[in-house]
């Protein structure tokens, strides 16, 4: 009798043990990055590279920041990311809406063609895209950094899945209420699929913020470098300062961490939307 009562608690304990183990696996590298960032490099090596800080130097973060000129690079990354996220949200929402609610010739075919572009990795389009940017004289500029990423098939696909869950009656009711398509999109479709839109915004932010290959290809001047390239500059310095590379990595990841904490509920709802009816 008693054991039955306690069973749920034991189950809970077991679950928490599993979750804790997984969290350790995921967080350990982050922790080690932190340890390496604040440890004095030579002393840390001499101490046998233990999993705890050796001779902590708390100014590592500010030194990394100034060494990599991360302030300027943060600005470039912030502008590029903001423009890309805003543009992708706009274009994906409109395209997804058209593919869901509007009737036009070859709708299905166009959608599949659209989706087919998902299968092309950036390496395939890199060289023609760089040539285009160069011919437009957009190397070392914001337009050059953002142009290829203003629209995305992935976002269109994700939002279309969200929009498909909206009952057709809502569109009909909205039409009778005197609202056009754009008003329906703004008043109903987006608010109803907010978790999906939010999780797409996070995904777009992550991929824009973490871009490396493209900025590397279209930027030759230091002042147009994004943070991810700046990180490379800090990492490539002498072994005496290799803790600064770790420090810079943590600084650069900070905006993402903040975003994930702020939007975590929306993201979980967005990623599980459609999995459970309701």
């Amino acid at each position: 009798m008693g054991t039955e009562l306690f069973q749920p608690t034991w189950k809970k304990v077991a679950w928490y043990a599993v979750l804790t183990a997984l969290a350790v696996v995921i967080l350990f590298p982050v922790y080690m990055t932190f340890v390496r960032a604040i440890s004095q490099p030579r002393a840390y090596v001499l101490a046998g590279q233990p999993p705890w800080p050796v001779h902590p130097e708390w100014d590592a973060f500010s030194r990394a920041f100034s060494l990599g000129d991360l302030g300027r690079k943060f600005l470039v990354s912030a502008v590029v990311t903001t423009v890309i996220v805003a543009a992708q949200l706009t274009t994906s929402t409109l395209a997804a809406y058209a593919f869901t609610f509007l009737q036009f010739p070859f709708r299905r075919l166009l959608f599949y063609v659209f989706m087919a572009t998902l299968m092309l990795p950036i390496e395939v389009t890199l060289i023609p895209n760089v040539q285009t940017i160069r011919s437009l004289d957009w190397l070392n500029s914001y337009p050059g950094l953002v142009a290829p990423f203003l629209a995305t098939a992935f976002g269109t696909f994700l939002l279309r899945q969200g929009f498909r869950g909206i009952p057709r009656d809502l569109l009909d009711a909205s039409q009778l209420d005197g609202f056009g398509h754009l008003a329906f999109l703004r008043r109903v479709a987006i608010p109803v699929t907010r978790p999906v839109v939010a999780s797409f915004a996070v995904i777009a932010f992550l991929s824009a913020w973490n871009q490396y290959t493209w900025p590397r290809a279209v930027v030759t001047e230091g002042r147009w470098e994004t943070v991810q390239i700046g990180l490379k500059t800090v990492t490539a310095t002498t072994a005496e300062q290799n803790n600064l590379g770790f420090a810079a990595a943590l600084v650069v990841a900070l905006p993402i961490l903040v975003l994930l904490i702020v939007l975590q509920r929306q993201i979980v709802r967005g990623l599980t939307a459609g999995a459970v009816k309701g």
Binding site: P167, D169, L170, D172, A173, R187, V188, P191, V192, R194
Partner: peptide, 8 residues
């Protein structure tokens, strides 16, 4: 039939 109320 579904009432078509805006859920949000």
């Amino acid at each position: 039939q579904s009432y078509a109320l805006y859920p949000h």
